[in-house]
Design a protein around this nucleic acid. Structure first.
Lengths: 184, 184
DNA sequence: TAAATACGTCAACAACGCTGCCGGAAAACC
DNA sequence: GGTTTTCCGGCAGCGTTGTTGACGTATTTA
């Protein structure tokens, strides 16, 4: 068993009889297919970086995502968190109640609207989130170092362009929270 | 209910009393946290692009991933596909048997090693994969146009650097398959 | 007061991961 | 040539994380 699959024989048949002069189109397609691979592998290995810690605490990636967004948005409401994660109330409830039960997340009634339960990390929740963060940070920092500053800028531009409008809007507003950088 | 969560009040407490002069470190951390968000949202919306088609065919994302890698590696063995997807034999078997049952994937015994079942897309499988591909292509092509050529190069560099060694090696070998570009 | 909203919860279900075990065919080894 | 290993398929069972739909309660709003 090879740890790394072979490239597969150069495919004897040209599959689709391309019209002459499609060189550019073909390259374009291969570019896109490469991007599919890049997104799959990078996301897989990036999320994987935190799995060791999660496993020993009997938590899953869903818990990690919740911790991440609560940590980044202390005082967020449940319904806003639902919109961010794009999951249903039920899915979140399960994850959230586990986090609250273990003392990683605290909820306080909203001062303006007392129906709301504002979510925030407890001290131990923040500590856990930091451990998870550092794993992924190491992975990303190494990648940034290797790729270089200009590449990082391009990376951000493309990633941002891939996501839809509401996600971009969130990033814009989130960017004004911690740093004062504003719109890039 | 806001379609887009608010940025959350600028967090009255400075949470951790940072030692003076950590401006650069703080920026660094915010950079990494931004990247976490970018990966989450971009991957989510990118994979989401194909979901409409999958849903009407009663297929899932796991089926899409299998179609993608079989399409890109016609004649791949089951065990090599397992390594690529990083799932267990059982998980793949379920997905694969569904695809074979519906006539999207064909398996032929290996010529060198007749224990192997070499996997390839059928005509209808290739057609389906193309439909799925085109959805994601549209998403990516728009992003590439918007971000510009140099950004795309940076994107590729960073994504590649994020993934682990075996995934990079796969990309290198896959790159020599369709195009003759070799090492970028 | 009536309606809408924010949140929690229960039931049931589906997709997609996992482990462990068994079996058959073919290859590889001695 | 016989043993072992490998490649693959199948079965049983389970866990996580997503889904829908319905109902209840507190609170705000019209």
């Amino acid at each position: 068993m090879s740890a790394i699959p072979r490239p597969v024989p150069p495919s004897a048949e040209p599959k689709a009889p391309q019209p002459a002069g499609t060189g550019l189109l073909f390259l374009r397609e291969e570019e896109i297919r490469l991007a599919q691979d890049l997104l799959f592998f990078a996301y897989r290995d990036f999320t994987n970086a935190a799995d060791v810690i999660l496993e020993e605490l009997e938590l899953g990636r869903a818990h990690h995502r919740a911790l991440h967004f609560i940590g980044r948005n202390p005082g967020i409401t449940v319904s806003d968190l639902l919109v961010l994660l794009r999951i249903t109330k039920q899915s979140l409830a399960r994850v959230l109640s586990a986090l609250i039960e273990r003392g990683y997340v605290a909820q306080t009634p909203g001062s303006a609207d007392r129906r709301q339960r504002l979510l925030a990390l407890t001290a131990s929740g923040a500590a856990l989130e930091r451990r998870l963060f550092e794993r992924q940070r190491d992975c990303l920092a190494a990648a940034y170092r290797e790729a270089g500053g200009p590449a990082v800028d391009g990376f951000r531009r493309v990633m941002r362009a891939i996501m839809n409008e509401s996600a971009r809007a969130y990033l814009d507003r989130a960017g004004t929270r911690a740093t004062r950088s504003g719109g890039r």
